[in-house]
Amino acid sequence: MSRPELTGAAANFYNDTEARKYDTNSRMIGIQAEITQRALELLQLDDSFPNFILDVGCGSGLSGKVLEEAGHYWCGLDVSRDMLNVASERETSTKGDLAHHDMGTGLPFRAASFDGMISISALQWLCYSNSSKQVPKRRLVRFFSALYGVLKRGARAVLQFYPETPEQAVLISECAAKVGFAGGVVVDYPNSTKAKKHYLVLSFDRGYSTPKGLQSAAQAGVRVDSSGSSKRVKVVKKKGKGKTKEWIEHKKEVQRKKGFENVRKDTKFTGRKRKDKF
């Protein structure tokens, strides 16, 4: 089967008929439930109370059902309105809530909202652009930096995805490392074509090492070294032409948004040109 990601936007692919097919296909239900179980296991939640979990790419709510069975409350986002309609028809759902949203545009939540985050078979969609304005890397970085904000400190995120090429897996993990996440990709059943699953496991804890993938322990997965990638970024910066006015203004704006109070005011002198000394 060709990859649905190559056919266009997710919202167009998962239309009403496709959504209904997806929701009633017993094979799909089985796979999605199994992956969600595994994602929950990797999430290592504190089970002494029900958690509030974000589900990005919740689709028709198959993963939400598993979360509910585990006793958690959840909030699901999806880009396909048809999938969400199927999800909202589910009578039994009392602990979930849904919103129509594209993960590449950031996340519409305040800081430190969730105890954990899962995403099942959705992340790879961000690697494709469906209009000239969409830049995959920008959308990935925007998603991860928003995710960094909405998770409670100490929370973890588990994102199962289907990379088309190894480069995609590397791109995704690099973007996650760039915004400050530690963690890496766990590959379950790496030697099987069908059962092989990629899980991106992210944590705030610098010393966090990803759990081992299931079955053959030989290949544990790509390790993301976030300190290494930030070094690489610094090298690029040095080559630049120095700090421009735009750069300074952007930096100050970011500081203000973070709530720093002693940020200098923007004046006509901000980032002015200095005299050449030589």
Binding site: L77, V79, R81, L84, N85, S88, L98, A99, H100, H101, D102, G104, T105, G106, P108, S131, K133, Q134, V135, K137, R138, V141, R142, S145, A146, H250
Partner: peptide
């Protein structure tokens, strides 16, 4: 609508990020 809130944004409305 139907309990589902529409948070779809255009690319121009999204926050800028450095890549």
């Amino acid at each position: 609508r139907d309990g589902i809130c529409d948070f779809m944004l255009e690319e121009e409305e999204c926050e800028n990020v450095k890549i």
